[in-house]
Design a binder for these strands. Structure first.
Length: 757
RNA sequence: GGGUGAUUAGCUCAGUUGGUUAGAGCGCUUCGCUUACAUCGAAGAGGUCGGGGGUUCGAAUCCCUCAUCACCCACCA
């Protein structure tokens, strides 16, 4: 053995050894183990990393799942760890579009099919890269069970679920206030938007009251939307406006006569106490509009420009129209004053921080009423348990909102929604496509068909915009009834497919894996996707199993939410801050074992932000070397006479220090096992570290250095081998390597050896 | 605006149901190249556990209050 532990060489060798023996395959492990009994199933789903980029430091937290997999495998459970990678819809398209941009191109240069296959190739390359990187950190998933989010089995499952939900009335199509990015040309769910502090001018606009000399002044940051105003609202308790309540005001931009309504929502103390109501472009106005049965006027088109209703401002983008509309108002004498330094918050997308336009757009929705209800019950009953009460409360709070889930996205990279629109029944389908000469064309299908044949349109199809009340057929394939159809060009929200991950990976409903490993035992994920993913999986699971013999089932019994990996000063790692760590750089420098310890023991995975400190990782690299050298000491002291594993506490030749360390060691086993079962990784790891370094290496080993008897050697070997087992889930490589050095012919590999008790 | 959590050594954090002199890693100081390991060993400095009040024989640990800092949700015309 080398004096210094060479992690680079040995980690590769050990992983190779496990793969050669198929030690990650549950079927094979049963044969490798001794005794060859089959334990209870214990299954873990890997949250599929996005296959659009190399892994980042957050993926080092996969060590948590791997720890549980290795721990339970050694305990004799029938462990199946299901891996996979995600297509990550919009995220991936975003990454790919940036790539196109560097090449001087954009998504608008391609028809749907071409763009889709380009992105798919890109993703497949990255998917392999992601898997290889996970292997580098020692992940012991059964790679032969790998699932990619666009595999046929996944797409089939997604279609089936959509069709089932549609049949049962949970899916509907509606015009609804959505978060629309005119830049990306797609909607976002509420979870995908943020508010940003901003300073904007606040305009005070006078609306004259019909039949009087008086006017009501309203404050707004978006004067360009006055074209879409339908009412003025005041608080019913506001005495200043009581006299106007039955009167009508004149819209200063288009002369529309608008009612003055009363609603509790209006804050008496804010601005002037009077609020303009624009149901087409503001979520609160939309709600008030619905309540008071007001007309909804859409002023902004999908391309982000104002439409013909905006008169003089038609064709302008909102920020341009703002300037122009203010000029017009000024000329008309309707501008009372401007507060230039007004602090407000503007809606942006989470990805790039570009403005989001709330607007009414036809979209596919899931009614969450029943689905949430079932999920709430299972959380309250603790059919599904969380590692902190905080998470239980947060997820309940969110579920109780029961907000409809918009599931359609206007991106091409994703699973398409299996819907077809009959052309003859829908006069007003708006189509964008690239013709055979490579020119982009836009128009209603009726007018386009007078110039092009349907085949040419289909081949170059980019987007079909469909009104909310369109007639449609739900079908995976184009209906064969002789009618002409255009497909839905929207794709599913990526969470619609990843929400069914527990089903697609295990092969719901008939496969043996599903029968054996569902519901899964342990789910580890970062808390930031609690609503996106964990809540959705829970709802899908309860829904899809509701008609089964066993009744509704949760997808996993235990959820462990870990924190975001932060730098040593507790700041979340992000590219913009420049404090990111490439996990593979640490693997290279200090070894995967050291990195894993840095995550599992150096920080605290259970807190919201868990620091990863390079100094600590270096310390754990030293620890690996310490372990290596204890093994080396044992090997040297064995000389030519091999010492077998195992010694009984009843052995008469044991001296008092031997008995002491053997008993201390059993106490350690008990404590570590119990802590791991409670997911207390940090304390368990610290205890082993402390025991090996201080108790075993510094103390006992020094005590027996001069002893020549075999008993001391046997005791040392016994205690050390137990330590290797306890530490294996944390530091799989060095423990296995040390074990390989000490084991004798016929002994099992550490990965499939039995957990001590 | 609604809610949650945190505040312990220079830094990053542990401290299980309240119980003997408050712990770890890194960093720091001094000494030591002793044949497992200098990616090491030995010894050591350093904290009135955010402030104040209370319960108790006894509180970092329970209660109240103040302060500071995070975070989640909703969203201001």
């Amino acid at each position: 053995m080398e004096k210094i532990y060479n992690h680079k060489e040995i980690e590769n060798k050990m992983y190779q050894l496990w793969e050669e023996k198929n030690a990650f395959s549950p079927e094979k492990v049963i044969k490798l183990r001794n005794p060859k009994n089959i334990g209870e199933p214990y299954s873990i789903l890997m949250p599929p990393p996005n296959a659009n980029a190399p892994l980042h430091c957050g993926h080092a937290t996969y060590a948590i799942q791997d720890l549980m997999a290795r721990f339970k495998r050694m305990q004799g459970f029938d462990v199946c760890y299901f891996p996979g990678t995600d297509h990550a819809g919009f995220e991936t398209q975003y990454v790919y579009e940036n790539k196109l941009k560097k090449e001087g191109k954009s998504r608008f240069d391609y028809d749907r099919q071409t763009l889709y296959s380009l992105v798919l190739n890109f993703v497949k390359l990255n998917s392999d890269l992601a898997i290889n990187q996970l292997k580098k950190i020692g992940i012991s998933a059964d790679w032969r069970r790998n699932t990619f989010m666009l595999d046929k089995k996944v797409v089939d499952r997604v279609y089936k679920t959509f069709i089932k939900m549609h049949k049962e009335g949970l899916i509907y199509r509606d015009g609804y206030m959505v978060n629309y990015s005119t830049f990306y040309g797609t909607t976002f769910s509420d979870l995908e938007t943020e508010y940003k502090d901003s300073v904007s001018p606040l305009y005070y606009i006078k609306y004259s009251v019909k039949g009087t000399e008086e006017s009501i002044t309203v404050a707004t940051v978006r004067p360009e939307t006055i074209y879409a105003d339908v009412a003025i609202a005041v608080n019913p308790k506001d005495n200043r406006y009581k006299k106007y309540v039955d009167k009508v005001v004149i819209n200063p931009l288009n002369g529309r006569e608008m009612p003055i309504i009363q609603d509790e929502y209006v804050d008496i103390d804010f601005g002037t106490g009077a609020l303009k109501i624009t149901p087409g472009h503001d979520i609160n106005d939309y709600k008030i509009g619905k309540k008071h049965n007001l007309e909804i006027i859409s002023l902004i088109d999908l391309d982000g420009k104002l439409n013909e209703l905006a008169k003089d401002c038609a064709g302008l983008y909102p920020n341009q129209a703002r300037v122009k509309s203010v000029e017009i108002l000024k000329k008309k004498g309707a501008l009372a004053k401007v507060d230039e330094a007004y602090e407000n918050r503007v809606l942006i997308d989470y990805k790039d921080g570009r403005p989001i336009e709330p607007m009414i757009l036809p979209n596919w929705f899931i009614n969450m009423e029943q689905l949430s209800e079932a999920a709430i019950k299972s959380v309250e009953n603790e059919d599904i348990k969380f590692n902190k009460k905080l998470w239980k409360n947060e997820i309940l709070r969110w579920l109780k909102e029961k907000k409809p889930w918009p599931i359609s996205r206007q991106t091409i990279f994703g699973i398409s929604i299996p819907v077809w629109y009959p052309i003859e029944d829908n006069d007003n389908l708006q189509v964008t496509f690239i013709n055979s000469k490579g020119e982009s064309k836009f128009g209603s299908i009726k007018s386009l068909l007078s110039i092009y044949n349907l085949k040419e349109i289909e081949d170059g199809l980019q987007k079909v915009i469909v009104p909310a009340n369109a007639k449609y057929v739900v079908s995976v394939d184009k209906p064969g009834d002789g009618k002409q159809y255009l497909p839905e060009t929207d794709t599913f929200d990526t969470w619609f497919s990843s929400g069914q991950w527990p089903f697609t990976t295990t092969g719901f409903p008939d496969s043996s894996d599903f029968k054996k490993y569902f519901p899964t035992s342990f789910m580890d994920s970062m808390w930031d996707i609690m609503f996106f993913w964990i809540a959705r999986m829970l709802m899908f699971s309860l829904y899809l199993t509701k008609d089964s013999k066993k009744g509704s089932q949760v997808p996993f019994k235990n959820v462990y939410f870990h924190g975001a990996i932060a730098d040593k000063s507790g700041k979340k790692m992000s590219k913009s801050k420049g404090n990111t760590i490439d996990p593979l750089e640490f693997v290279e420098k200090y070894g995967a074992d050291a990195l894993r310890m840095g995550i599992l023991v150096g920080g605290n995975t259970a807190s919201r932000y868990s620091p990863l400190d390079e100094d600590k990782v270096r310390g754990y690299r030293n620890f690996a070397n310490k372990i290596w050298n204890v093994a080396r000491f044992i090997q040297i002291s064995e000389e030519n006479a091999a010492v077998p594993f195992g010694i009984e506490l009843t052995d008469k030749t044991l001296r008092s220090e031997d008995i002491k360390i053997l008993t201390d060691c059993s106490a350690l086993v008990e404590s570590v096992t119990s802590k791991l079962n409670k997911y207390n990784f940090k304390l368990a790891g610290e205890e082993i570290y402390e025991f090996i370094w201080n108790r075993l290496a510094n103390q006992y080993l020094e005590e027996i250095k001069d002893r020549k008897d075999i008993t001391a050697k046997r005791t040392l070997k016994e205690v050390f081998s137990i330590c290797l087992k306890l530490l294996h889930p944390f530091m799989p490589f060095v423990t296995e390597a040390a074990w390989q050095e000490l084991k004798q012919k016929g002994d099992l590999d550490l990965i499939v050896s039995n957990w001590p008790n």
